[in-house]
């Protein structure tokens, strides 16, 4: 049984610190080229197919702007 996950990043709250990127075991997350209204390159799910919904990114996010979803397939 495999786990499929997905994250939703609150773009406006994200400050683009990149701590979630290095904590993602599957390299799912990247920083966007575009910026939010505060001028930060926000994090986003760059490769959705690899996300397992492990919640590591959300656990380390200092601004708590990541919501995680997970299903068993």
């Amino acid at each position: 049984m495999a786990l499929k996950g997905a994250i939703v990043v609150d773009r406006e709250k994200c400050k683009g610190c990149g701590v979630c990127l290095v904590n993602c075991p599957t390299n799912t997350i990247a920083l966007a080229k575009e910026v939010n209204s505060k001028g930060y390159n926000f994090a986003f799910m760059a490769s959705p197919e690899s996300c397992t919904g492990c919640t590591n990114c959300a656990t380390v996010c200092p601004d708590t702007c990541i919501t995680v979803y997970r299903v068993k397939v």
Binding site: K4, G5, A6, V8, E12, K13, K15, G16, C17, G18, V19, Y40, G53, T55, A58, T59, P62, D63, T64, C65, I66, T67, V68, Y69, R70, V71
Partner: peptide
């Protein structure tokens, strides 16, 4: 299909307000 309320495994706790923190990134 994954992003549905019943599949949510992590979200901001309601004890934390929705105010954006003034702390530096990271």
């Amino acid at each position: 299909d994954i992003i549905k309320p019943e599949n949510m495994v992590y979200s901001k706790t309601p004890v934390l307000t929705s105010t954006t923190m003034h702390y530096c990134p990271g």
